[in-house]
Design a protein around this nucleic acid. Structure first.
Length: 221
DNA sequence: TGCCAGGCCGGGT
DNA sequence: ACCCGGCATGGC
């Protein structure tokens, strides 16, 4: 299935999504950690608390005690783990880039991506979200919705891993930040409304004409 | 009420 | 190289 066509249909159905939801680069970076396997509504509350406490800064986040950071991010779930992951990433930014996100994002993508992945708590989706939505660097973000939508339509094999899926997508799309930004946001929008894990609503999905003859494939991970 | 949400790590085979 | 349990809050 040509993904350009998929993109065109999604954009026509939903319009621009304005991702990442109206936030500064540091908030995107923090949000990328906090949203791991968690709904965004839970993350918003945590970011709000950090903002009120003026903690949305790499050095500030490195300086406060871990137990205190845990309380700020509690609403995002997995709060002990996420406090540590957040700390790890902020420490990385302070150590390697003197706490400057601008400096970090001046690093070439091919060099920065592996560096981010070396931080404990930063996996491929988190790294790509940071690179694309905070750094405006061209990388296609894969997530659970991307995987579910692509497999249910039969566009990829169920055993396709993150990087294969990313390569598959990038190989048939122009290498543009704006496109990758909008496409991922649209896939999440589609996923939330029509392609939930349980209770999918394929009959009303804007991509229903693209489903294989027998209906969606697999229906589970 | 139980199940799910924009993953990732570490330990066990 | 896989496979799997653990991690936790808030919403429907």
């Amino acid at each position: 299935m040509p993904l350009q066509e998929v993109y065109r249909r999604l954009f026509e159905a939903f319009g621009p999504q304005h991702w990442w939801p109206g936030e500064s680069p540091i908030e995107v970076v923090v949000g990328a950690i906090l949203v791991q396997n968690t709904s965004w509504t839970n993350v918003e509350k945590a970011i709000l608390k950090l903002r009120e406490a003026e903690l949305l800064d790499p050095r500030a986040l490195v300086d406060i005690p871990l137990e205190e950071l845990e309380e700020y991010v509690r609403s995002a779930g997995y709060f002990r783990i996420k406090a540590r992951r957040l700390r790890n990433l902020m420490q990385f930014i302070v150590d390697r880039f003197d706490g400057s996100l601008d400096a970090m994002f001046r690093t070439p993508l091919a060099e920065l991506r592996p560096a981010l992945l070396s931080v404990s708590g930063v996996g491929p989706e988190t790294a790509d979200s940071i690179l694309l939505y905070a750094g405006q660097l061209p990388t296609f973000v894969v997530d659970a919705y991307t995987y579910r939508i692509f497999t249910r339509h039969g566009w990829i094999e169920p055993e396709t891993d993150y990087h294969r899926l990313q390569e598959y997508s990038q190989s048939q799309l122009p290498d543009e930040v704006q496109l990758y930004n909008e496409f991922h946001a649209l896939l999440v929008r589609l996923g939330k409304e029509f392609c939930r894990k349980t209770n999918p609503r394929c009959a009303q999905c804007p991509l229903r004409e693209l489903l294989p003859p027998g209906g969606p494939i697999g229906s589970d991970e």
